[in-house]
Structure formats: structure tokens, C-alpha cells
Design a protein around this nucleic acid. Sequence first.
DNA 1: TCTTTTCTTGACCATACGGTCAGGAACCGC
DNA 2: GCGGTTCCTGACCGTATGGTCAAGAAAAGA
Lengths: 205, 205
Amino acid sequence: MNTASPTRKPSRIQKRNRKLILDAALEVFSTHGYRGATLDQIATCAGLSKPNILYYFTGKEEIHITLLNGLMDTWLAPMREIDPEGDPLEEILRYVHRKLEMSREFPRESRLFANEIIQGAPRIGPHLEAGLKPLVDETSTLFEGWMAAGKLAQMDARHLIFSIWATTQHYADFAAQVRVLMGEADVEGGARAHLDMMFRRLLRP
Amino acid sequence: MNTASPTRKPSRIQKRNRKLILDAALEVFSTHGYRGATLDQIATCAGLSKPNILYYFTGKEEIHITLLNGLMDTWLAPMREIDPEGDPLEEILRYVHRKLEMSREFPRESRLFANEIIQGAPRIGPHLEAGLKPLVDETSTLFEGWMAAGKLAQMDARHLIFSIWATTQHYADFAAQVRVLMGEADVEGGARAHLDMMFRRLLRP
DNA sequence: TCTTTTCTTGACCATACGGTCAGGAACCGC
DNA sequence: GCGGTTCCTGACCGTATGGTCAAGAAAAGA
């Protein structure tokens, strides 16, 4: 019986294999996109047989959705950690640095989301509305309060957030391009210094 | 006989149909990615039959590569238009605005490139090295000269370029997300004002 | 007009892919 | 050790997809 049974805590094997599958799927989906990924690739990558994959998940789409949902929390955590009581400039800079770190630490997750959004968010659209939007609205209000209090330079809070996302995730999503253009240089360190300077200049009242 | 014949100027019909195909392919590839796109979709979208598509192109991959190569020039044109003799700050701001305009005007092209790069640039990698890198190197040198002359704030020129690309293309590549978060607001105008202010603050010596 | 070349297509093919199923193997409480 | 449940797989199926081909329709020369 599969996981459809309502009350049944997952066995040791179940936990291990679902993790194997999701990890393999993250690898494959993030590099080939949803349509480009195949169950065979995921199975091989996970070290399991294809029917076994379908023993744990009802189909390809469920794997993808499970991944996206599970990752959403991790992905938004840094924004949730912005402290309304902290120093505005330092809080936002900390957020920038945390996002950049995540770009380096979880590039596959970043690309998974990027792939999904670029293609019109066909499978995660509802979750954007329900999960992301409230958080962004709240954070925007917080930023606007800081600006009104003269703690930050005046600007559109949502566009500021877009700029932070864009500049930090760029290093994960466009890594192939960055690698070509930067060669052997210390990309990570350079990016950190650049973004710190950039947002410091931008936000200083 | 197909286009492999070396010396043969394309007929009227040939020109029209190749254009139809490439335009349809841009639409389909940019929204579904390379693997997600099918020849049938492209054929339907172009109003031609599938075998007819394959009369003009040897296969799916050739269509994709032709698209990428043909678009590269258009895509890099704004960077080529930066005037070394112009006012540094205004030249770069003009570049930012031009890139943002292209995001609005050619979102499909932007997503096509984004898809390709995210997946590791498997089909355009060589062209990045040969076409993009020299131009970026040259532009970086120009920027560094301006910085050394005290016309711009000091920073890493390559990371500056990344920041410009990331923030402007974000509005095309992540349009689905922006739409959810901004609702009916005037995204275009807000983005223009925000990026102008942002890079002005950043670059002012 | 007649001929040659270019263009177009319906029918077809081989493969790849998502998914199913019957039955066997491994695990687990007893 | 035994019975029942969970876990696993080889073989298989229907469909979608990239691509081919022979032959007809349309243009283009002559």
C-alpha cells in the first residue's frame, strides 16, 4: 500500500528511499527541466528501479510537486528571518548575504525554481499566491516602515526585493555563463564584496 | 535539395517559411525549454506540416541552434552600443534602460537564453566563449578605465555587468512571479524608476 | 506550353517515455 | 519458524516524438 493511507508513519526504508528519490529528482529536474527529465534518469540516479520509484510516488508530476513544496520553506526561510527589531541596513545586508550563500550551497534548488518560474509556474503557481505573496507583502510593509522612519533610502520595496533575488540567484542560475566569463577568478568572494557594497550604497539613507 | 547547397540564394518561399518556423520555434522553445518543445507544436504554431519543417531544417537541434545564434547579435547589441567617448554614468544608465526595454520587448528571447544557460549551455557554450566573452572583456576594460579616471565609483566591472543583466532580465525571465507579487501595478514604470535610481546611486563616484 | 526544380504532405517507422501488473523477495511482529 | 505486510522488479503496454520517404502539387524556367 502506498502513502495514500491516511494514518501510517513511514518506515525506515520508506524514509530512506523517498529521500533518495527526491535527491535524485532534484539533480535531474534542475538540470533538464520538468519535461526534459525522465523517470529512468531519476531511477538510475537514485540507484532504484523505475517501478520502485512509482511505488513511492504516483507519478512524475507528484515527485516534482513534492520537491517544489518541500523546498519552498527552505527557500523562503532567510526572508522570514529578517528581524523587524534589528538594524534595518544590517538586516537587509544579512538577507542579501544569506541569499548569496544559498545560491552557492543550493544551486540545484535555485535552478529548479528558476526552471519552473520561467515556464510560467504551471505547477507551483498556486503556491506562489498562497505562500510567497503574503510573505513578500509583509516584508514590503516592513521595509516601507523603515524607509518612512528614515532608516533606509526611499524606494519601491518590491522592486528592491526583486533586485536582491535577481542579483543573488544569478550566480546559481547562470553559473554556466559566469564560469565562462570569470574563468578561475574567486567568483564567490567577488560577488559577496560586490553585492555588499552595492546594497550598502543603495540602501543608505 | 535542402539548404546544404553551398551557393544558392534562398527563394522567396524559403525565406518566408524559415522565418515562420523560427518564430514559432522561439515561442515554443522559450516556454517549454528544449526538451519540452515538440516538432508538432512548432509545426502547428507555424502553420506548416511537420515534414515540411524538416524540409527546411535537418532536425530539432538545428532549429534551436539557429535561433540561439541568430538572436545572440540582437541580444548583445546594447552592450556594443556603449560609447567609450560618452559620459560614463549616462552611458551605463542608457545600457540599463535599453536592457530593461529589451526585457519587455523580447521576453521570449530572454527566456530562451535563460533556459539554455540554466541547463548548462549545452548547445550554446562554445558561442559564449567565442562571442560573449571578448565583448564582456572589452566592456570590462572600458568600465575599469572609467573607474580609474574617477568617473565612476570603484567596483568589479564584471560583477557590475552581472548585476545589470540579472536585475533587468529578471522582469522577463521571472515574469510569472513578478505578476503574482505586483498584481495590477505598473511594473514596467516602477522597474525603470527603481533601476535608474539604483544604478545611479551605485555608480556615482 | 512543357520541363525541371522546388515545395508539401499523408503514411509510416523506430525509439523513448510514463505508467501498469503479476509475482517474487525481504522484512517484521509473533 | 511462520504469516502477513512491505518492498522490489522484469516484462509489458499505449502513446508521443523525432525523423523518413515516396509521391503529388506548385513555382519557375525554357
